[in-house]
Design a protein around this nucleic acid. Structure first.
Length: 361
DNA sequence: GAGTCGTGGGC
DNA sequence: TGCCCAAGACT
């Protein structure tokens, strides 16, 4: 159920462009360029991640990997530390894989059409359209969280925006706005304007309708339904899980192990993790390490999107003069090198508390 | 369609 | 404090 017919489409895109030029965001580090590499990198980092969080990661990443070839020439282990803490690590693995594919199979030339860009790993329809719009001016619509908020409210589109039928309606509506726009439409400004509206005016909590250039034709504004749209997604209760983590320290080194590429924290380096303290002790003994002197540290919990993890950390400072042979996938890491290691946020937090003077991020 | 995949900010 | 969600994509 919606009121798509009631909301005016004429002048929609041009209104957004005018507002973007006057009141939108202009100084972000990935703006003011048509370099598809920089635009692509920013769009991947910005997936499900707020602008304020991305800025520092983006600048640091770009300084180390300034172009496609530099990224393709690096190993994944060189890339991951620059993504550690940002989350959704499959994005980094896909980014790296994508750089290699473009360099090896496409001669280093970034594809130009949104349809082709969307074939690359980690790039869906919306991200492909954003890259094509910013880099090449292609008239392809995006559909991210911002645009969903603006469109569901402006056109009065009810139902879970993630549901198939609703999502399809949103895409069709977005395409219709482009079809109705002037041929001279500035796609960069339009695309940016929609996101700026969603981030600045059409926010979830208290939308600033008095500042919105679309308020005059907006279904939600006219009918006072701002707080009913977009419809909230149904959510089931988050599961709770427990684990024990072992900080095995010896000769100024900590034992870390690399996670498999699939699953949580894929490709990152973690502390050895066990279901509980008993499993941890058994593992220690089987490797010839006496778990007896291990000290229990303050617990911490970490909330993911779909579950909550309660971590019970144990500290075991070795007395033996020599490092034991690490198991496959494990590595003794000097404390001084932790700052450059790809650690998940809670592990970094834990080790920061233990080695506060070592300049971890 | 429903799960999986991180982290931090806002209220 | 807990809950929602952010420039989504993939299985």
């Amino acid at each position: 159920m919606s009121s798509t017919d009631a909301a005016p489409a004429a002048g929609f895109a041009e209104t957004v462009v005018r507002w973007q030029r006057a009141s939108g965001r202009h100084g972000l580090p990935w703006q003011g360029t048509r370099d598809p590499y920089r635009i692509w990198l920013s769009e991947i980092m910005l997936q499900q991640t707020q602008v304020a969080t991305v800025v520092d990661y983006y600048l640091r990443f770009l300084a180390r990997f300034p172009d496609l070839r530099t990224l393709a020439a690096a190993s994944q282990d060189e890339v991951m530390p620059y993504w550690a803490g940002l989350g959704y690590y499959a994005r980094a693995r896909n980014l790296h894989r994508c750089a290699r594919e473009i360099c090896e199979r496409l001669g280093g030339a970034f594809p130009r059409r949104a349809e082709d860009i969307a074939q690359l790993p980690g790039i869906g329809r919306s991200t492909a359209a954003a890259i094509a719009a910013f880099a090449y001016g292609e008239r392809a619509p995006i559909m991210d969280g911002n645009v969903k908020r603006v469109f569901t409210r402006y056109f009065g589109i009810y139902g879970n925006p993630a549901a198939r039928a609703v999502e399809l309606q949103l895409w069709d509506t977005a395409q219709a706005m482009l079809d109705a726009a002037d041929a001279s439409l500035d796609m960069g400004a339009y695309t940016q304007g929609l996101m700026d509206l969603g981030a600045g005016c059409c926010t979830r909590g208290k939308p600033a309708c008095t500042l919105c250039p679309l308020a005059g034709g907006c279904y939600a504004r006219i009918n006072a339904k701002q707080h009913e749209l977009p419809a909230p997604k149904p959510r089931k209760q988050a599961e709770e899980r427990q684990c024990a983590m072992l900080i095995l320290e010896q000769d100024g080194c900590v034992l870390l192990e690399q996670r498999p590429s699939s699953g949580i924290w894929g490709g990152l380096w973690c502390l050895p993790q066990y279901d509980d303290a008993q499993a941890m002790r058994a593992a220690c003994r089987s490797q010839g390490t006496d778990p007896g002197p291990a000290q229990r540290m303050a617990a911490l919990s970490h909330t993911f999107t779909h579950f909550k993890l309660h971590i019970e950390p144990w500290l075991l400072r070795g007395a033996a003069p020599r490092l034991r042979q690490p198991a496959p996938g494990q590595a003794w890491t000097p404390v001084a090198a932790l700052a450059d290691t790809a650690l998940p946020a809670p592990v970094r937090k834990l080790l920061c508390g233990l080695y506060p003077t070592d300049g971890l991020l």
